[in-house]
Design a protein around this nucleic acid. Structure first.
Lengths: 314, 314
DNA sequence: GAGATACGAATGTCTAGGACAAATGCAGTT
DNA sequence: AACTGCATTTGTCCTAGACATTCGTATCTC
């Protein structure tokens, strides 16, 4: 009996001070889950009539889960170049059609093994994922594995996640596996310690380590020293670290959803604060989409082979 | 000549539409660099008269760099328990004194090697850090290394970071190194695949992978299967993943700064949605500090040896 | 004296519209 | 085909008010 009363109490407290129930999220949670800033969520509502959140007891916005799902699709489309007035407010079906059209554009002609990995992820068949990846790495070698296998695979998985065909935890799991595999491979390669190292990292808010690790691999196969400070590093810390390690170059990985104005500003700030001798390189899907564009002294690499070519010329 | 005109143009554009010059930052940049939300910056200004930004031509706030530096100190103090009205508005000297006082309190009795690692980090001597860690792991074995070396070392480094004696990027670098070392060690150990696996992760907002990896190590030395979905995983994803992998147990790592009310709510929510046969374990410094406390069926481990003991009894 | 309870102050985050510069799209011109 | 100028779109900032939760402290009870 007492247990039940307690349970009810807990439940009441939960609903009242959460502002987040099983079926709806409050605005901060939506910002976190979709990556759309609060200000933008409010202004879209005012201008386009979508999203149309409910209100809780305090008059605060409360977003039903299906609207959050739609917002994720919208974000995906906006990130890939659509303008908000074309996509905000459309229903989910239309959005999926647009996304489908955009998706087939690159034609990520996956190899049989890569397709097998996506399927295994969906079946939660971890062992199969691990074995296939390991086998591919061994057969192709680190560089070809990263460029020919991992890059298309990662983008296919990103699309599958955005399109709802793969759960977040499945994508997390894939990242974990690949990260471990690459780490191991990298640490087995010798390094030329007489060269100035490159500092590797991502900007604040950017949490994807995978791109970082792939870039690190390209450095590693050439024996180029390279220090990864990991994801989510503030600008002033990158500056400090580049001084501390006497880095000849700072290389940032910017994912598609990381190409925000605030990232563009961060790049400018960084370029201004770095010494003139230190190069600044940007890579990743989002690198060429930064607006405003970084100054010309900042080198942008659209693809991994481009970066590999640059490394060979060094 | 053309180059100079271009340079001037770039510079003008930069100053005009960035609202960020060499000597001051606008509000979004301050949020990015200090981690203090924009709303909070504005409300501190209204309430405490600090920070006191200048205004640019459009009436937007423009924060001088020295105020940003002070804000960073304030943020550290607030994170370590001081209340804003005690620290916001104090001058930099006072803040440094407070930080210094907090610093000496714990006085963790580090081994010579561990102290050596902290020093090497501060000297940016990456090679020394790597070699020392590798050596300690080999000499002590994975379990003793994690419990006796890494645990105190990680907490010393956390303190040093909070006290401003270690830069963020130095702490990031340490995490990267240890993560790689542990990953490698773990993947070399055999696993009993006939047991139900444990799902490992952290809650949304919690980005520390190190604790996760240390726990994974304890599972690995016993051959217990264990799937790490990585940090920052939403509750519904943990539920899905535990079903998909038929996990017997979900184990969460909660760091000191992760013990927020929202984390406590997430734990409750998670326990409600998991099947009754699935255990829920919490570990890490923050686990026992959750308010409201999780129900008794949730097992909380204050220390790694406790967890190790529990694993041996399984 | 230790521990629980109650109350006031402190604190972060939400709300509403309004405003405006920069980016984009488009028409017209060289 | 490339450039120029104008209108629209868009994200972010602004002010100022509100309020639930948390923290500190004073009071009460065992």
């Amino acid at each position: 009996m007492q247990f039940f009363i307690l349970a009810i109490l807990v439940n009441l407290m939960y609903v009242s001070f959460m502002s987040t129930t099983d079926t709806s999220l409050h605005i901060a949670a939506v910002e976190r889950d979709t990556g759309i800033p609060k200000d933008t969520l409010r202004v879209w509502e005012r201008r386009y009539g979508f999203p149309r959140p409910m209100r809780n007891d305090h008059g605060e916005r409360t977003y039903p889960l299906d609207q959050v799902a739609t917002l994720r699709l919208v974000k995906q489309l906006v990130d890939s170049g659509y303008r908000p007035n074309r996509v905000v407010g459309r229903d989910e079906g239309e959005l999926r059609d647009l996304l489908g059209a955009a998706e087939t554009t690159p034609g990520p002609d996956l190899s049989a093994e890569a397709q097998g990995i996506v399927d295994a992820l969906r079946r939660q068949d971890l062992a199969h994922v691990q074995e296939t990846l390991r086998g591919l790495l061994m057969r192709r070698g680190l560089e070809r594995f990263v460029i020919d296998t991992l890059a298309p695979l990662a983008s296919a998985i990103g699309d599958a996640w955005a399109g709802g065909r793969l759960a977040i935890h499945e994508e997390h799991l894939f990242s974990e596996q690949v990260d471990r595999l690459l780490s191991q491979a990298i640490s087995q390669l010798p390094v030329q310690n007489d060269r100035a190292p490159t500092l590797l990292g991502t900007l604040p808010g950017e949490l994807h380590r995978l791109g970082l690790r792939m870039v690190e691999s390209l450095f590693a196969v050439r024996g180029l020293p390279c220090i990864s400070v990991g994801p989510d590093v503030p600008v002033d810390q990158l500056v400090d670290a580049s001084r501390g390690h006497q880095a000849g170059c700072v290389a940032l990985s910017i994912s598609a959803c990381g190409a925000t104005p605030s990232a563009a500003r961060a790049v400018l700030d960084l370029r201004n604060q770095l010494s003139n001798e230190t190069m600044l390189w940007l890579g990743g899907r989002g690198a060429s989409r930064l607006r405003p564009r970084p100054p010309a002294v900042v080198e942008v690499f659209e693809t991994l082979p481009e970066l590999a070519g640059r490394l060979d010329r060094t």
